[in-house]
């Protein structure tokens, strides 16, 4: 068991190192700005006095490593600095939007994960049938489509042609849970379609791979029904790759959410990040970038740990 624990601990340490380097990159990235951050934001016409005052406000007069440690320390304490655009604390701007983003991504995951695993199992069960081929063709094309194409097709169909769902997903705290769910149906559906293809294909491939093993042959020869063979014998053994692909796609959801949020004008972190990039509101960009990165890195970490734990062969690495 110790080898297993060592493996997991090593993977977690790797994740921490990754996060550290990413935070350093985010910080150095701003350092590496050609010229000076203050002049870049204020423009060429700014007087030397304004630039000096602004530099002081951004603490640019201190040496870089001092600022990095102070920035990271503040970040850990939950103080994310002040937005340059509207002078409000970044933490206040971000927390509500981050909750919204998680809400949207989680709803999409709740819909997409069981659906794609179910479809993957069915496609493996009836493989090379018309059903399998249709699903494979549809998923292959949704992989090739940009997120906003899928989103606008859904809007054109479900919001404009048949007026069922709103094309703008504005949510606020006064809304009940059901109202919130109703207003995010379209972005949720878009994300589901985008991530489902990959998960479903991997589930299908993993199960078909297992179906070639001798113990499946044995189960068949015992006369067990095909559905039962797949659900009780093949699926548990395909769990490791399936969990892995699910976690990778959840990580992808967090990123894909940026574009979908912009399409549906959803008040999430991705929307805020995009707005702040065009306004060059560096503190907000840094904070939201670091949060996205942290979620992404932890989900990938979770994927690796889960696949170590569910795969007996990984427990004894050579």
């Amino acid at each position: 068991m110790s080898g297993l624990r060592g493996l997991v601990i090593r993977r977690i340490l790797m994740g921490l190192v990754t996060m550290f380097v990413i935070s350093l990159l985010i910080f150095v990235g701003v350092e590496a700005l050609p010229g000076d951050l203050a002049t870049a934001i204020l423009g060429q016409e700014a007087t030397p006095e304004t630039v000096a005052a602004f530099r002081k406000e951004l603490k640019l007069d201190l040496p870089p490593h001092v600022r990095y440690i102070a920035w990271l320390g503040d970040f850990m304490k939950g103080d994310l600095g002040t937005s340059l655009a509207n002078k409000r604390p970044v933490a206040e701007l971000i927390s509500w939007r981050f909750a919204n983003t998680i809400f949207l991504a989680a709803s999409a995951a709740v819909l997409a994960v069981p659906l794609s695993i179910l479809l993957g199992i069915l496609a493996a069960l009836y493989r090379n049938s018309l059903f399998d081929k249709t699903i494979s063709m549809v998923t292959l094309s949704t992989i090739s489509f940009p997120e906003f194409f899928v989103a606008y097709i859904l809007i054109a169909l479900l919001s404009v042609q048949l007026i069922i769902f709103p094309s703008i997903s504005n949510i606020n705290d006064q809304m009940s849970f059901a109202q919130k769910i109703y207003s995010i149906v379209l972005p949720c559906l878009t994300l589901t379609l985008v991530v489902m293809a990959h998960m479903m294909r991997q589930t299908r491939a993993a199960i078909i791979n297992i179906l070639a093993s001798p113990f499946i042959e044995m189960a068949r020869l015992k006369g067990i029904k095909r559905m039962r063979v797949i659900v009780l014998h093949a699926f548990p053994n395909a769990l490791s790759p399936v969990i892995n692909v699910v976690a990778i796609n959840l990580a992808y959801l967090i990123v894909g959410v940026v574009i979908v949020e912009v399409v549906f004008v959803y008040p999430g972190l991705g929307q805020l990040l995009v707005d702040s990039v065009s306004k060059r509101d560096i503190p907000v960009v840094q904070a939201s970038g670091l949060i996205f990165a942290a979620v992404y890195v932890s989900l990938n970490l979770l994927a690796d740990v889960a696949s170590i734990l569910t795969n007996p062969r990984m427990r004894n690495p050579k």
Binding site: T18, I22, L25, I26, G29, V30, A32, L33, P34, A251, I254, V255, V258, L273, V274, S276, V277, R280, I282, V285, Q286, G289, F292, A293, Y296, V297, N300
Partner: peptide
Amino acid sequence: AFPTLIFALMVLSVVG
């Protein structure tokens, strides 16, 4: 290990 889109957004915010 860093999501590409987020990384690109951050770099573009700095270099314009």
